[in-house]
Design a protein around this nucleic acid. Sequence first.
DNA 1: TATGAATGAGAGTTCATTCAT
DNA 2: CATGAATGAACTCTCATTCAT
Lengths: 240, 240, 240, 240
Amino acid sequence: MDKPDKNKSRTRLEQRESDIMDAASKLFAEEGFHATSTRKIAAAAGVSEGTLFHYYGTKNVLLLAILDGFYEQLIESAREGVESVMGTRERLLLLAKNHLRALMDNQALMMRLIQVYLSVDIYYYQDYKKSPIHKLNYRYTRIFDNVVREGMERGYIREDLELSAMRDLFFGGLEYGMRTLMGRKYNRERVASYVEAIVDPLWQSMQTQHSTADSNAADNSRLEATCKRLESIVERLEQA
Amino acid sequence: MDKPDKNKSRTRLEQRESDIMDAASKLFAEEGFHATSTRKIAAAAGVSEGTLFHYYGTKNVLLLAILDGFYEQLIESAREGVESVMGTRERLLLLAKNHLRALMDNQALMMRLIQVYLSVDIYYYQDYKKSPIHKLNYRYTRIFDNVVREGMERGYIREDLELSAMRDLFFGGLEYGMRTLMGRKYNRERVASYVEAIVDPLWQSMQTQHSTADSNAADNSRLEATCKRLESIVERLEQA
Amino acid sequence: MDKPDKNKSRTRLEQRESDIMDAASKLFAEEGFHATSTRKIAAAAGVSEGTLFHYYGTKNVLLLAILDGFYEQLIESAREGVESVMGTRERLLLLAKNHLRALMDNQALMMRLIQVYLSVDIYYYQDYKKSPIHKLNYRYTRIFDNVVREGMERGYIREDLELSAMRDLFFGGLEYGMRTLMGRKYNRERVASYVEAIVDPLWQSMQTQHSTADSNAADNSRLEATCKRLESIVERLEQA
Amino acid sequence: MDKPDKNKSRTRLEQRESDIMDAASKLFAEEGFHATSTRKIAAAAGVSEGTLFHYYGTKNVLLLAILDGFYEQLIESAREGVESVMGTRERLLLLAKNHLRALMDNQALMMRLIQVYLSVDIYYYQDYKKSPIHKLNYRYTRIFDNVVREGMERGYIREDLELSAMRDLFFGGLEYGMRTLMGRKYNRERVASYVEAIVDPLWQSMQTQHSTADSNAADNSRLEATCKRLESIVERLEQA
DNA sequence: TATGAATGAGAGTTCATTCAT
DNA sequence: CATGAATGAACTCTCATTCAT
């Protein structure tokens, strides 16, 4: 589309860029950010150390580029997923699956890298909200927000919901659970059922609440349980 | 109990130990693990670097000791909290408050340190389940598990609940949300209301389903009060 | 042969390499391996400490490189010496002089370095025979072996000789004696006469043994051997 | 024999001293002088580090004490050996066996320690001859010297022998050969035959010479010259 | 006499980054 | 644009030795 010449050279540059980013991603994921030297990265990418710094002026910049790419991909696949189905619950399940899969593909190290990034650059972006990562994360979580808001508009979800708490539970729950999931082998079915176990309680509490029938079942059963305990105490007392 | 002399020296040792741990905790929290040199820690603790390594053979060991202490405290306060109230929901609220407060007191960096620890020692404890941190975390989350299980036994919570998913949502949600909370100043009320916003959806989905529970709030609270009175009678009877 | 540019830079690299090795050799010799810090070496070589580790990844590697160079030189001069004269006894004298002179030029510390090296790397090369130093030493002592073997073939030396014992006496005697020699000032004549004092007893015991009967058996067998060679040459000439 | 009280306490002190020396000897031998920290030694000896420095003010002093003890033992057993047999050759064989066995019992590291010692204390005893080790070594090698001298007096050994060269060959040969011997397992027979292989050539060259070899030097040199001429002709022919 | 906590200098090594080529 | 040699500050950790108890 562009001039072939420019196109060609741009392609080569891009090739190198992605070589470096791939190598760095892999190493960061495997050994951690601090344990990965720029020398190792350059070697793994098949370029000289000088070149690495030619492309990314700083190790931190490289880290940010990786995270950026990761989020960009995450956002894109999330958007595609949301557009592919209609129901709010189905959309949430898709978002959850997408999130989990992306993290697992990267050995969950992306999460750690984000932590590192925030550690490292806390000096530059004293206000978390100004940090590039925050902006990316904001763009990403807005997708979830929009799905929920649309659910509200359509009446599937009660309107007095605290959206931010729901968001925290959704993403926090997934990420926290991932640690457990990680130990075992990647398993598509397990992921699916885990995702449901996370989403369902949230989905349930999101909905407008019907059924006046057995209204206070909880309290009823509490009463029943208490009665049982009283009875058993009475029995013991009688035997004593 | 011992000779005063010995006692004294033991105290001095312990003093030094805690000086070092305090200094290290502070610095790790402020600047991160990797950005804090042992030199800085020693200086901040008012001891020589040699002494630091005399007490903790390795920077990693020091990190582990800090995390250990943190968890120990967390576990203790959680247990106390659980024992101080009776209702399951109240207990969950207390656990959540305790968790959040502990994290915020440490500038939420404890979470990062745990990540660092797992990164660093992944080589030693190839199986995450064998790592000391996992064991501590297990002990801690068992408190939550027990609260929920007891709720089930007493009939307050439906028995077909997926406990592990609930745990993930609970702790994950809190930790994820903490980031947002952190930016603002510490505020006891805000924490309380945030905690409710996290716990309520979970509590709701834990209970037997489709209850109109909140629809007739008045009756509900009367029942609630009665339940509580009965329960406390039971407690007293059992202890007698 | 190459571009002068490349050639030049290669030269500069080699210059640096040898600067470092020279400085290290000197310091190791003067103060011993353990007492010489990499810092000192770098300073003496006029490079930064980083550069030192750029060239030799480890202090041990540097040590090995020095020993390697030392042996290489030793081997070369020994070979030249052997080729420059014909008689077995003369060759042994030359080898001895060469050995002694090389050691004395390095203040005899090379021997100590070899010991250090073997100490240090005993863990890496559990089998002594696999250590690089052993291989170098083997190459070197083979020169002595070959001289003796040729002496046997030519009949100057009795064939029932225990070569390994002879080798031990030769090199061991020289090195042991060197300590004594070291204290005094370098003295070409003294070395020459000392060398004879060491070699002569060995030479004597190498030759076919007394029995006054055929008094000059050695010379006789030399004559016989020479005749045989002459005869075989004549044969070849006749066939040509 | 002494006062029981003093005796007792002296015994305890001596016990401790020897505990420390034994532990240090073992560790020095196994890991080398520099790789063995005083902490390790103290732990292995079952005393505190303070105590170690109480007995031996310095790590170097400890080293010297060990070497001193080693030599003392070596000297004693050598003297006993010499007195137990009469023949000069037998005495030399015994001395050699004794030397070899002592070194092998200590994993040959004693030799290295001596080197270390000389390195370390070269600053204190700028003149080798004044160093304590030199004195010990002198006392020890005098035993060899005396055996040889007595052999001369009794007429077993020719009187124009260069004693110092003989000594260098004897001890140097043994120590050099030990490296080879070390690799294999300790084997009493092997040691015996090795010792003979070392001593015999020396013994041979020590004896009064019945060969006419040197007696008729004139004839000899004529033969020699003829040989050389023949040989050079052969060389030229072969190269042609 | 025996202890072991405390020291601080110094060790080897790593590292992100620069810059002349 | 690409290189990789060069840097030197900073790192964690070790060590022989001291000294108050």
